[in-house]
């Protein structure tokens, strides 16, 4: 099982590979793209991209020297038909300088790359919301070599897909950055924070209505409001514990470390660390965290021991005990937490 990590500058290659990443993914906005299309939307993120083709070439050279692969994100949910040729040119250039795979969500672009850049591997982005065997077969037929599963799947679902389709590489999320909605069915942009930020944490003021159109009965409303409070707490975890890091520098959740033994056993090819836009130090600490767990799995430690280690790595097991910091809460380790150390 390999660790797939995000990069946004050539300087991140060496520390991330030394920390244990064997696969790196990045985006690039070619200099003529904005001039041609008057948008920076080459991929899903406006920020966190490499500075141009020269940087991309440096990333590939450095990574290959260190025996790591490089994947290019062309992962917007959709592209206009006017973009397809330009994107195919980007992918062809990427392949010509040694790039290993493109991460793609748009089915038209997948078809175009398969036809026109046949020696470039296609990884189906999590943005494609491919989360069943039949759908994975559909993408395989289009030319995909790897399926990156979306965030909100269960380990049982991951295992079923990986077991049923051994000819496909399966990649699953393991750390960082938690969309609330499914990426492939969230048709919004992350606005600047002063304009609202991501819609899932924007300041919507909602009121409940019953099916009749009226306010819910008092008792129901109390239950709904209690559920809202729990949800806010879950949201805080979903966004990295309020966008903070643990005292020892490791990133908070969302986290799938406890699920890694099961994913390894199921034959999952890679585990993905999200966060291209994050700081370099956060990326390195993320890889270190995942690598420590992977090392123990590969050394043959029993699953329970690995999970015990996983919840101890951040030195704050109470957050793990909340159950809200997990990508795969059904696999969380449940350490004994002293009452005084339990989260409020």
């Amino acid at each position: 099982m390999k660790i797939t990590a995000p990069i946004s500058t050539p300087a991140e290659v060496e520390p991330l590979v030394r920390a244990g990443a064997r696969e790196l993914y990045c985006g690039v906005v070619p200099p003529d793209w904005i001039r041609r299309f008057n948008t920076s939307g080459v991929n899903r993120r406006v920020f966190g991209n490499l500075n141009g083709y020269a940087d991309l070439e440096r990333v590939i050279d450095n990574a290959h020297t260190l025996d790591a692969e490089v994947f290019l994100v062309l992962n917007a949910q959709q592209y206009g038909e006017q973009h397809l040729d330009a994107l195919t040119e980007i992918a062809a250039h990427f392949r010509s300088i040694g790039g290993n795979a493109a991460i793609v969500a748009d089915i038209s672009l997948i078809a175009s790359l398969t036809a026109n850049v046949p020696d470039l591997a296609i990884h189906v982005s999590s943005v494609a919301t491919c989360r069943n065997v039949e759908s994975a077969r559909f993408f395989a037929q289009l030319g995909a070599r790897r399926i990156i599963l979306p965030r909100d799947v269960t380990v049982a679902e991951i295992s079923a897909i990986a077991t049923e389709l051994p000819e496909l590489d399966i990649e699953a999320f393991v750390l960082n950055d938690g969309c609330v909605f499914e990426e492939g069915t969230c048709h919004t942009v992350h606005l600047p924070m002063n304009k609202g930020g991501p819609i899932c944490i924007d300041n919507y003021q909602f009121e409940y209505r019953a099916a009749s159109g009226e306010a819910p009965a008092e008792r129901a409303l109390r239950r709904l409001e209690k559920n809202d409070q729990d949800y806010k707490r879950w949201l805080w975890y979903r966004f990295g514990n309020g966008f903070s890091v643990a005292p020892n520098g490791y990133p908070w959740g969302p986290c799938g470390l406890c699920a890694m033994p099961a994913m390894h056993a199921a034959g999952v090819h890679s585990v993905k660390i999200a966060g291209r836009e994050g700081a370099s130090e956060r990326k390195v600490k993320s890889v270190e965290l995942v690598h420590e767990v992977l090392r123990r799995i590969e050394d043959g430690e029993p699953e329970t021991k690995v999970r015990e280690c996983a919840v101890g790595l951040r030195d704050a097991p109470s957050h793990c005990a909340s159950g809200y910091m997990c990508y795969y809460p059904e696999k969380r380790s449940q350490p004994e937490i002293p009452v005084h150390a339990q989260p409020a």
Binding site: E81, H187, V189, I199, D202
Partner: peptide, 25 residues
Amino acid sequence: KMLKDPRLPSATWARMYPNGLRAGP
């Protein structure tokens, strides 16, 4: 797929990711 964010400040933002409904593939 199409961009449908009701918070977008202007039509310019809405053109950031045009839909691909007319694409041949």
